[in-house]
Design a protein around this nucleic acid. Sequence first.
DNA 1: GTATTATATGCAACGATGTTGCAGTGTATT
DNA 2: AATACACTGCAACATCGTTGCATATAATAC
Lengths: 138, 138
Amino acid sequence: MEQLRETLKGHHLRTTTCREDVLSTFMNRKNALSHGDLEGALGENYDRVTIYRTLKTFLEKGIIHKVLDDEGLRYALCSHQCSEEKHQHDHIHFKCNECGKTNCLENLHIPNVALPTGYQPESFNLLIQGKCPECLAN
Amino acid sequence: MEQLRETLKGHHLRTTTCREDVLSTFMNRKNALSHGDLEGALGENYDRVTIYRTLKTFLEKGIIHKVLDDEGLRYALCSHQCSEEKHQHDHIHFKCNECGKTNCLENLHIPNVALPTGYQPESFNLLIQGKCPECLAN
DNA sequence: GTATTATATGCAACGATGTTGCAGTGTATT
DNA sequence: AATACACTGCAACATCGTTGCATATAATAC
């Protein structure tokens, strides 16, 4: 639980119960979460708006990053220490079509792509959809 | 303009002025369009709901496909003849951070990725963000 | 421990986005 | 031209996300 405070302080944020709860929800569930997921988990304790603002703050401070899938927007913890200044997220996201969960595959890097001349790439976002190990086992 | 009717008929759809206008908007602008873009272009002629339903129908029939970026959901024409039965979209999408336009890079395929054991991939979606040739030229 | 200051929260209200049901209109077919 | 079916517009609603403001809370200084 001290780790939560450490993470928040490390990103120059005040420790509040809402921020601690949102952060620990991200750490307990391993997969990417939408605002709705968090509202479902914490909605009785905190206002919708507060959760929105917490997500926005976490995004700006580099604690979480956006994850896109065909259903919409989710968020996941940044693994390597991201900060307000620098984000680095060229890893792969995998969404299971069976259980619906989206995860970061931290260790896999996105392979190089030879873009046509004139295109200057700055960031990459690869989403793979299919079946995850847990669902294949059943 | 006959081409519009052909495309619609080819996908077993009745030709209506709304569908013709939505389709020609996609063909004239080369980039991916959101519902809001279409409403801005055609909103005075057609009801919001009709445009939503047209997009939904086009999706189901394989005339357009979803394109995701950090701002949300857009749609783009399917190049290779997709149908209700089969969609094939493993090409790359490029979003320009300057002009905000998202395009399909039809000719580029997504390179292979060695997934960890247990993951069964079914579809791939690669979004590259950066600067497009037009914006770099200015 | 208390006072001060800056920040975070809750509430209310609003705007944008997307969906559904139903009556009326238009398209394709005979 | 008549019929059957599909599409459209309207109204109403549900969801999602944002903003302003008063209050509460956390960090800092005393």
